[in-house]
């Protein structure tokens, strides 16, 4: 199975890169873009066929390495 892990800064943490990208989009005329949050994206190829197991494994590695829980949160999709 493949697990996709999306890591972003927590909503309470200021994201200067996202802010700068939002400002750039505004200067391009995209005034309807209210805010941008920049993050990281990981694809994990897993030796399992069970979605629940894949999700649990992805969460474990996200907790241990892919995300820093002090500043980041993550979301997982499996298929």
């Amino acid at each position: 199975m493949r697990a996709r892990v999306f890591v972003t800064l927590k909503p309470s943490v200021f994201d200067p890169q996202g802010r700068t990208i939002a400002d750039a989009l505004h200067s391009l005329g995209y005034g309807t873009v209210e805010d941008v949050r920049q993050g990281k994206y990981f694809e994990l190829d897993l030796k399992t066929t069970e979605a629940a197991q894949a999700k649990a494994l992805a969460a474990e590695v996200a907790d241990k390495l892919l995300a820093n829980p002090v500043i980041e949160s993550y979301r997982i999709e499996v298929d």
């Binding site: 800064l9 200067p16 890169q17 500043i71």
Partner: peptide
């Protein structure tokens, strides 16, 4: 030290990038 958990907290990009 922060990432190793020997000190608390984390580092972000400088606010002016």
């Amino acid at each position: 030290l922060l990432e190793a958990g020997l000190l608390p907290g984390a580092m972000l990009r400088n606010r002016d990038l």
